[in-house]
Design a protein around this nucleic acid. Structure first.
Lengths: 134, 134
DNA sequence: GCAACTGTACACTGTACATGTACAATATAC
DNA sequence: GTATATTGTACATGTACAGTGTACAGTTGC
């Protein structure tokens, strides 16, 4: 049994694989602190049933997060959230982020979103991060 | 022959398919206005040789951008950049952008990038967009 | 020890990516 | 006008990956 109910959604029609969507969504919660160290995630079967996918798909997502140091997986107990030390960033990490950010914005503009909308979202997120420390 | 030399790079080791990397990179140039209407992109074989991939891979990328309305493809003439009308954004576009933006930041933080670094990048991009009109 | 529940391993199927190859269309040279 | 070169396109193929079905292994609680 998990400590809390997660509100995750996956898009089966998306071009991104489901297990990667799960990883992204969970990591966002972990980074934001919505999932604190000591919490237990739902079991692979529980979450799989909730999302409508196979439990091995969820297990793959858990395994990736465990490799990244976010989770500790053990049979019968479940997925425990760890307090993860911040790794040293790679040299190219920043420019890689900048490039992907630019591409994300380009795609959004290509979908018709206005510049001022994007600017508002970017600034709002920046504000939120700024108050979050580190 | 193309009007200009493109500076694109693809990462064959990436988990993202090459044709999608090409789409993202070209779309970023198109949205930014670095590729103006009336320009001719390099031929599929030219660009493929430059990137070290098969010309059909580049063709697939061109085809996607053509479907989005960015390019007009014709045999023997090449890929012509169109002046694309801004489509009406879908209702979920904004929250979809917000979610993906959040996940991108989460992944960056997970890689060790500091909050202030991310804030700086977000604000810099917002500044750039703000001056760009629309 | 038994039972129930956990994550894990592995074979299997469908699908997507990238390619090799051949073809169709068209601008250019003559 | 015709030949030719160069363009984008169509399609079959090899390969790898995503997702699933099924069975197994480990751990907790009785």
């Amino acid at each position: 049994m998990a400590d809390r109910d997660l509100t995750l959604r996956v898009d089966l029609a998306s071009d991104l694989p489901v297990y990667r969507q799960i990883v992204s969504a969970l990591r966002a919660l972990l980074v934001a602190g919505d999932l604190r160290a000591g919490s237990l995630l739902p079991s692979v079967r529980e979450l799989a049933l909730d999302l409508g996918v196979h439990h091995n798909t969820v297990a793959e997502a858990y395994r990736i997060l465990a490799e990244e140091g976010w989770l500790d997986l053990r049979r019968r107990r479940g997925a425990l959230v760890l307090d993860r030390h911040q790794p040293r960033p790679e040299p190219e990490a920043r420019e890689g982020f900048r490039r992907r950010l630019g591409e994300l914005v380009a795609e959004a503009r290509s979908r018709g979103l206005q510049n001022r909308t994007l600017v508002a979202e970017l600034r709002k997120l920046a504000e939120g991060l700024n108050g979050g420390g580190t």
